[in-house]
């Protein structure tokens, strides 16, 4: 019950924010929402399914380029163009997932890392379409509010989706793949089909997001589109909050976004190094993240609430 109230309050605050605050706050929140979306998407494939992707910016960058090109050459309105970016990300992720998900562990991570670098090299090299390193320019977006609301809707949608996933058969099957893929396969979990589905699911929102980000910046170039810093920050957020949890990415994104904003404003020269230090600190000191810690201490209810209630109800019926 209290969870629902918190969610409603959050929703109301997010909805009211652009009406009542300065452009700076809106601009900051746009970036925060962006990372919430990226973090939740990454959490689906890497947190729940256990396939650590070091190249999820591939989909972000593809979406950014697709949407920018749609706006420039087909004069499509930017919200639709962003959806087009998402569609391209999905269309690429499907066959890619079938191929890449045959790799496991470190191999998948390196493969995805190489893939993002390959896309970046292509964006640099295919200058007749992408203008190479010069980048593509869009008409500047004066009013950030429409972008803000779209991002907010996407972010809340993903939180809700993750909540549903956490309490679903599909979610449990993904967790089974994470814990022991061969075992899950032996028990009849259709691992290939399910992990490809999770991969595609985790590619869609970054694709849309990339398009919205390009509109927000009114500019895109290969280092921005396929930035390793975006990748690293996203991973840090999920890791900090807790991989494979419903609220972990949100907590991580909020805490680290605020932290980064402070660091970036005060120490722009050592910003990236600080992000690296933060990740190293989390890996060494609390590799499971904040949320699992809070759950163990009993400050938060454990995950998979609906399934847990179902399980505890089944026991007396049998006895």
């Amino acid at each position: 019950m209290s969870g629902r109230i918190v969610a409603l309050v959050l929703l109301a605050v997010t909805a009211a924010l652009p009406l009542a605050s300065a452009a700076y706050v809106v601009s900051f929140t746009v970036q925060l929402l962006l990372f919430v979306i990226l973090a939740y998407s990454w959490n689906i494939i890497s947190g729940y399914t256990g396939y650590t992707s070091f190249g999820h910016t591939s989909f972000f960058g593809l979406g950014a380029y697709a949407s920018t090109l749609l706006i420039l050459h087909a004069q499509i309105a930017w919200p639709l163009a962003a959806l087009g970016g998402g569609a391209l990300a999905v269309a690429v992720a499907w066959p890619l997932g079938l191929v890449m998900l045959r790799l496991r562990g470190s191999f998948f991570a390196i493969g995805m890392f190489g893939l993002a670098r390959a896309f970046e090299a292509l964006a640099f090299g295919w200058a007749s379409v992408t203008q190479g390193g010069t980048g593509l320019y869009l008409p500047p977006a004066y009013d950030l509010r429409p972008i803000y609301y779209l991002l907010a809707a996407l972010a809340f949608g993903l939180v809700f989706l993750t909540y549903r996933l956490d309490n679903s058969r599909f979610g449990l099957q993904l967790l089974a793949i994470r814990e022991d893929e061969d075992g899950a396969e032996a028990l009849g979990v259709k691992t290939t089909r399910l992990k490809v589905r999770a991969f595609v699911l985790s590619a869609a929102a970054p694709g849309i997001c990339g398009g919205l980000y390009a509109t927000y910046l009114s500019f895109i170039d290969p280092p921005t589109a396929f930035s390793p810093a975006t990748e690293l920050t996203t991973i840090a957020m999920v890791l900090f909050g807790g991989m494979g949890t419903v609220l972990g990415p949100l907590v991580g994104a909020v805490v680290l976004s605020v932290l980064y904003e402070v660091l970036w404003a005060r120490f722009p020269q050592i910003y990236l190094g600080m992000v690296g230090l933060a990740i190293a600190g989390v890996v060494l000191l609390m590799p499971r993240g904040v949320l699992p810690l809070a759950m163990r201490r009993g400050w938060l209810p454990h995950g998979r609430g609906a399934l847990r209630r179902l399980a505890s109800r089944a026991v007396p019926a049998e006895a």
């Binding site: 070091f54 840090a236 020269q269 190094g273 992000v275």
Partner: peptide, 23 residues
């Protein structure tokens, strides 16, 4: 530990070193 931990650790070490090199 699991491979992801060492990957993340060396990846983050790499960013710290790059930043140190820039300084």
């Amino acid at each position: 530990g699991p491979p992801i931990m060492s990957l993340l650790l060396t990846y983050s070490a790499s960013t710290v070193f790059v930043n140190g090199g820039l300084l």
